[in-house]
Amino acid sequence: MASIGIRGVAERAGVSVGTVSNALNHPEKVSAASLGRIREAIAELGYVRNDAARMLRAGQSQTIGLVVLDVRNPFFTDLARGAEDEAVRHGMSVILGNSAEDSAREAGYLDLFEEQRVRGVLISPYGRIDERLRLLRERGIPAVLVDRASSDRRVSSVSVDDVAGGRMAAAHLLQIGRRRIAFVGGPVGIRQVADRLTGAREAVASIDGATLEVVPTAALTVTEGRRAGRALLASARMPDAVLAANDLVALGVLETLVVEGSVRVPGDVALIGYDDIDVASAAMVPLSSVRQPTELIGRTAVGILLEEAAAAQPRPRQVVFQPELVVRASSGG
């Protein structure tokens, strides 16, 4: 069945197309009698206004595209919530895309958002996308990096100092007397993971006799954390501390060490994660973690994006928040 357009409504109501348009957008300009007939016609015909077309004609969309690394990770769920709250405050909506740590899927969402002429794009990128974002900007679609600092100062970003976070987490483990630390997580090609590892290495290098072993994972998931936990159990010498690249990996490691290996946490192995997602405090051994202001990241990114969309000559901004160490039972808190 063909969709009903504004012309069909006008014919049914016995008014002009312009009168229907005014009824939809400026009802105060239409008489009560005409407005009543138009509303009756809309109800009878089942007319649904095409806001996408309307915004395209107006040259301005009311939607923002958001691409995250893994929608299963509560960190990105909270980030999206913050972005959505700020967007709604400005009468806008957010379309969410999950790249699933896949460059092709990431590129597909960027293509889709460009086709939809979104107001702008927020993205937590998987790979290097500086050139792609440059092309978006040239076509009038601003972009802001979220949860990753910009290496290209021409692109705005809202991030957390992950080098400081990794350093903070490793320093905590060293301060409680641990010397054989395993950093678990990956791929290291993800900038956030690489930065957290850099910070951990800096802390370990400052203490004589301390070592840092890297146990890479294929993804930042509980399943990969379990696999890494089994690798640790099978190693010739267990570490006395584990720093995981995020809380999901840490929870997988924790489950495997305690359930399959009968390892005492924190007695035998102290453990700390990253992100401080809600479930961290409810784990079988409450998880120490590095907290990020997740919803604030999303809200701030939307604010910057809308500023850039409205400016004739936008000036990119780099906002960097500081992380916070949260100590719980998994590291002796």
Rank of each mutant, 00 (worst) to 15 (best):
Y47S: 02
V30E: 09
R72A: 11
V30S: 08
R37Q: 05
V71H: 05
L45I: 03
S61I: 01
E40S: 12
H90P: 06
A43T: 07
L56T: 09
G46W: 08
G65V: 03
I38H: 02
L79E: 14
G36Y: 02
Q62S: 15
D51Q: 15
A87F: 05
I38F: 01
D51R: 13
I64D: 02
R49T: 12
A58S: 07
L69F: 08
G91D: 15
I64W: 05
G91F: 11
R39T: 01
A53G: 10
L79C: 10
G91C: 14
A33F: 00
N50P: 06
A87M: 07
G65S: 01
G65Q: 04
D85P: 09
R49H: 13
E40K: 02
R89D: 15
Q60W: 07
R54N: 08
A80D: 10
P74D: 12
L35C: 01
R49E: 14
L69W: 06
A53S: 08
R37P: 00
A52D: 09
G59H: 01
P74S: 11
R72H: 11
A87L: 10
G46S: 10
L69S: 10
E86D: 13
S34N: 14
G65L: 00
R57I: 02
V88S: 15
V88T: 15
V30L: 06
F76Y: 14
Q62E: 14
